[in-house]
Nucleic acid binder design. Structure first.
Lengths: 217, 217
DNA sequence: AGTGGAACCCTACCGTGGTAGGGTGGTGGT
DNA sequence: ACCACCACCCTACCACGGTAGGGTTCCACT
């Protein structure tokens, strides 16, 4: 088994190279004698069985199987001495919230600077908690992080594209009409055309089908 | 400047540790003499100015500023000898599509196995194209990759939660009613309660506001 | 015993969404 | 000159969504 003062770490992330990169960093810059990279929760238990409980476990919130929540509570439960940190790539407030209620010692965004990373790891090893603050006014995720579709690639006319874009913002026909200086009726016809082309029964069906997507002008 | 047969690489990714991890891997496993990690498109030009154009550039599709598209076309334009690969963390078909129309030499998912990574890099260096195939039946992104909200944390009654969940799927009142064995009218009242509580004018407003979110049971 | 809320049902009313079926004018292609 | 397509306008009709009244049961809390 591991000697008393040896520091070992486990990194769990579904991106093999990311896990390896972080593990490597822990070895070279954070004074760990051993750091293993793991890609699935299943391998986690196997690894612990072989090498014993690590000093620190860094676990990605999103794993291929879903969230890491069950794995985290089990880890905490079975190996209470292991320090637990959660890392995440996307800065979703809901994720922060969930993590804060979890029995873990720290939370960190993957886009953190290596120096911050080292600082956080040191703090957690020392017995302190380390929770990343939300960066101010960075509302990337939902809005910026998806590609606008062009009307053409949906088989729509330019005008239909404009109407669709406004529909997806939740605007009613009347508002669309006045925004485009049209009759409500003309808008309705564009809407009918769009629904027909995209195979949706009504605008709600359309919106839910295209949920999260955007269309440009 | 760099000697003729030396291989240098540039890795651009907004997650510092990821960039470093990949760069490290390129050095240790892919025969690169030099591999720099960069986090923003801006630093890219500075680095090239200092060390010359790299043999290979690995660029994340999503950068803090938005997509890497402008940087990619400029790279290809100004340094046509540099082999260009795009990497991405999320497997969005729209991203694949955009990349395929780009003047780049390869595309790769970050969750690829290191061995695949090495293989792809070797192929591209050799002058071949390397485009990752979409994994079959992995529809993670949109669906699985967000946390369900509980009715309670939205200030809703359990029943309202059930109705809301179905509303967000785009179901009309009538369908919801028969699914829950209710009168359409009763559903309407739940809907009114939900709209009222969440401050939405109508269900479309509601759906667009909560776009991408899910609610459980 | 009384109060309040949640869940359920009812009738009635009205605004919006969507379809049908008609029309005009402009543009690009053959 | 013709056709096809797009964009725009019109009237008329009906289904759906949502509000506003009214009501009953059951349960939890005081």
């Amino acid at each position: 088994m591991t000697p008393i003062n040896e520091h070992s770490a486990l990194v769990v992330d579904d991106h093999p190279l990311v896990a390896r990169g972080i593990a490597e960093y822990l070895r070279s810059h954070c004074g760990f004698d051993r750091a293993d990279a793991i890609c699935a929760a299943a391998d986690l238990w196997a690894n612990i069985g072989r090498f014993g409980a690590p000093t620190l476990a860094l676990v990605d919130f999103w794993l291929p199987e879903g969230t890491a929540l069950p794995a985290l509570v089990r880890l905490r439960d079975e190996y209470p001495a292991t320090r637990l940190m959660v890392i995440s790539g996307d800065d979703d407030p809901a994720v922060r919230d969930k993590v804060r209620r979890l029995p873990v010692d720290g939370f960190l965004l993957k886009q953190a600077e290596p120096a911050v990373f080292a600082q956080a790891v040191a703090a957690v090893l020392h017995g302190d908690a380390w929770f990343d603050e939300a960066p101010v006014a960075v509302q990337t995720a939902g809005e910026t992080r998806n590609l606008p579709l062009s009307p053409a690639e949906l088989g729509l006319t330019p005008r239909q594209g404009e109407v669709l874009a406004m529909m997806l913002k939740g605007l009613p026909n009347k508002r669309i009409a006045q925004a485009l200086s049209l009759t409500e009726q003309t808008v309705k016809e564009h809407v009918s055309g769009i629904l027909d082309r995209l195979g949706a029964r009504n605008r709600i069906d359309l919106i839910t089908r295209l949920r999260g997507k955007r269309v440009d002008a």
